[in-house]
């Protein structure tokens, strides 16, 4: 198991390095000189050259790349040249919004999606199953930002229960901070919950038809006992894969939802950086997103191996 984890971890590190290289290269070939962008069209060539040197833009690409990577290891992400602050500090400030938002959304989507999927599978063919699956079909089709707009209209504008947007820092008022994340995480979670419900149902229905469920029943279990004791764990395998992938969508989704609710998270930071052409900020934020996604996939792999002995066994006969 440890070796399995170590192998996967090396894979993760390699992927991350490639991701960093591609991001760096993509942004490095960007037409337009950041120094000129900062100083404006009327700047003298001398001033531009001076700023380039100050920003370290005149060094060879390879040197700058490894400088960037090496810096990230010690928490130095460089200096944002539009905001004049260390990028690490900017990103860290935003994670207080984005991480809770993602985690709450993940918990919501699993907490809603999985039970619905199990219920529908156990009552396959019933009215409840049909109804739940129609809801899931709709849930999958709803754009999360649009759903967010509706939530604001209903709960903030009409009912005035929750704030329509913005964010109160955790240090100021934790309850208000939490309250401002409720609607955004629901908007993020709902489509994902619908997907999970569908995957869970399919997986469980497949498992119900499997030979080992038949064996378990032949041993003296009823169908529902057999499904609970032997089916659910097997059905979790495909669900785990989807959970891992979903995290990627959730991370990406925060970028959108933070826009709907005017949340000062990582997503908004990226947008501001794009419009300001703040390359250093963009590339570091993108790498943080990619790290989150790849890291989750790594955890998914571990969880998968923990559930499935076929993956961690040495004898693969």
């Amino acid at each position: 198991m440890i070796r399995f984890a170590l192998t996967k971890f090396l894979g993760l590190a390699a992927t991350l390095l490639v991701a960093a290289a591609i991001t760096f290269a993509a942004l490095d070939i960007l037409p337009g000189d950041p120094a000129r962008f900062i100083l404006g069209i009327n700047a003298t060539p001398d001033a531009v050259a001076a700023l380039r040197e100050q920003l370290g833009l005149d060094a060879p690409a390879l040197q700058r790349f490894f400088g960037w990577i090496g810096g990230m290891f010690v928490g130095d992400f460089g200096l944002s040249y539009t905001q004049g602050q260390p990028v690490g500090q900017l990103i860290a400030g935003r994670l207080g919004v984005t991480i809770p938002l993602t985690v709450i959304a993940m918990i919501l989507s699993a907490g809603i999606g999985l039970p619905i999927g199990i219920l529908a599978a156990r009552r396959r063919g019933s009215f409840a199953d049909a109804g739940l699956m129609v809801l899931a079909q709709l849930g999958v089709a709803i754009p999360n930002f649009w759903f967010g707009m509706l939530l604001v209209l209903l709960f903030s504008v009409t009912l005035r229960w929750l704030p329509p947007g913005g964010f109160v820092p955790w240090g100021e008022n934790p309850f208000a901070a939490f309250a401002s994340l409720i609607l955004p995480s629901i908007a993020l979670a709902l489509p994902q919950a619908a997907i999970l419900a569908r995957v869970m149902r399919t997986a469980l229905v497949d498992v119900q038809g499997s030979d080992y469920i038949r064996t378990a029943r032949a041993k003296g279990l009823t169908l529902s006992e057999a499904v609970w004791k032997h089916g659910v764990r097997n059905a979790m395998l495909p669900v785990l894969t989807i959970l891992g992938l979903q995290f990627a969508y959730l991370v990406a989704g925060t970028v959108i939802v933070e826009n709907v609710f005017y949340l000062p998270g990582l997503g908004r930071l990226i947008f501001d950086a794009i419009s300001a052409r703040d390359l250093i900020l963009v590339r570091s934020s993108v790498i943080i997103l990619v790290l989150a996604v790849i890291g989750t996939m790594f955890l998914t792999d571990l969880a998968y191996a923990w559930v499935d002995p076929r993956l961690r066994s040495r004898k693969a006969e």
């Binding site: 992927t15 993509a26 794009i274 996604v293």
Partner: peptide, 22 residues
């Protein structure tokens, strides 16, 4: 397969952000 895994790690939105920036 590795390229595949790799692309999976970049949801469409992140790719779009990169492309748009450029």
């Amino acid at each position: 397969l590795r390229v595949n895994d790799f692309l999976f790690a970049f949801p469409a939105l992140i790719i779009a952000i990169l492309i748009t920036t450029i």
